[in-house]
Amino acid sequence: MERHEIEAFLVLAEELHFRRTGERLGLAHGRVSQTIRRLEHRLGVTLFERTSRHVALTPAGRQFRDDLAPAYRRIQEAVARAVASGKGVTGTLRVGFSSQWAADLLIKATDVFRARYPDCAVQIQEVQLSDPFGPLRANAFDPQLTEFPVAEPDLVAGPVLFSEPRALIMPAQHPFARRESVGLEDLARTPLVSVSGDIPQYWIDYHYPRQTPGGRPIAHGATAVYWMEELSLVAAGRGVSPTALRAAQYHSRPGIVFVPFRDAPPIEYGLVWPRNGVTARVRSFIETVSEVASGSDDGSGPAA
């Protein structure tokens, strides 16, 4: 049997419709019909009952499908393993993420990646707020998905994969808490809870600015090392803190409110990896995540 005959039979056995089968295989439905007739002639058995309105497997066709499908899947898996091995896409890939919404995209991409490269395991783990690039430099992660900007000479920042609108986290009793939105100039009127640790100053200045676009100073108060600590400081009335608006879907809790910005640029996210650490599996994973983020793998796009 030829490969195209096996594929035509198995897809038709699933769809039970010549036009849909042709669409999946990129063939005219007449070509599918010819292929099935040749296969039946070669085997000497009728595999499908056909009428103008109905296509169904015969008992012999059902038995042939049940015998053939598992064997064909094993062949496909063996081919995928051979290709992956030839490309070096084996072993374990360790991937970091900076937020739960970034993790959602990585989990979705990992499912696609593992189907393509079954001999490569993927482990994902959260990156701590206080040391965003330390694990990459320590080889604890291969790539990681994180907030931009990233301007490190030993790291490569890929293209922006997705972006999120900004919000301001504040205590539930804050004067801004009942507003529909806040503006960047409002930051001059309330202390800012920021972060501390081994974090580049340009990154802190971008996400936790010290002055408004109009030049008014922004007071910095308490600092947090971990994300949950930041939420607790805000709830305790120690200040407000900017974040992605989507954080409200994951971290809403009594005592805090998420109010969207009306004039702040979105937070951009992308993959980052060591400049000297690009392996075949890293490159393949980067390509897969990019496809999933854009929706080009299956049309479903990034996690919502």
Rank of each mutant, 00 (worst) to 15 (best):
G61A: 01
F148Y: 07
D111I: 15
Q128E: 15
T212N: 03
H4A: 15
G158L: 06
V95F: 03
I286R: 00
G61S: 00
R179G: 06
A151K: 13
S52G: 14
P209L: 13
A219T: 12
I36K: 02
R114E: 03
R24D: 14
D131Q: 13
D104F: 06
R20P: 06
I267P: 00
Q201W: 09
P175I: 12
E5N: 11
V225Y: 10
L233D: 01
M170P: 00
G22C: 03
H41D: 15
A80V: 11
R19W: 14
Y250C: 14
I124S: 06
F97C: 03
D67R: 11
E291M: 10
R262D: 13
Y117I: 08
A264P: 02
P302V: 05
G61H: 00
V79P: 02
H220W: 02
L16F: 10
A264N: 08
R179A: 10
S98V: 14
P118R: 00
G183F: 14
G214V: 13
L145A: 04
D67F: 14
E7M: 14
L129F: 05
V127C: 02
V127D: 02
R283T: 14
E126V: 11
I256M: 05
P213K: 03
E5F: 10
V83D: 15
G86H: 12
R94L: 05
V292P: 00
V195C: 09
P302T: 07
R283F: 08
R20A: 11
L192Q: 04
V156I: 05
A172M: 06
W101A: 09
R73K: 12
A102K: 07
K87V: 07
Y250R: 14
R114W: 03
G88M: 07
H251C: 13
R3G: 12
R246A: 11
A172D: 09
A177W: 03
L16V: 07
D131Y: 10
H251S: 10
R74T: 11
R53H: 13
G30I: 11
A293D: 00
L184C: 08
Q34E: 14
I6R: 01
E7S: 10
V112L: 07
V127G: 01
P242G: 00
V55D: 02
I199R: 06
I199P: 01
Y72F: 10
V282K: 04
G237E: 08
F261Y: 06
L12W: 03
Q63F: 13
E49H: 15
Q201G: 10
G255K: 04
S181C: 15
L25Q: 04
L184S: 03
E229M: 06
F113V: 01
H220Q: 04
R19K: 13
V193C: 05
L136S: 02
G134L: 12
S85H: 12
E40W: 09
D104K: 09
R53P: 12
F141Y: 07
L39G: 02
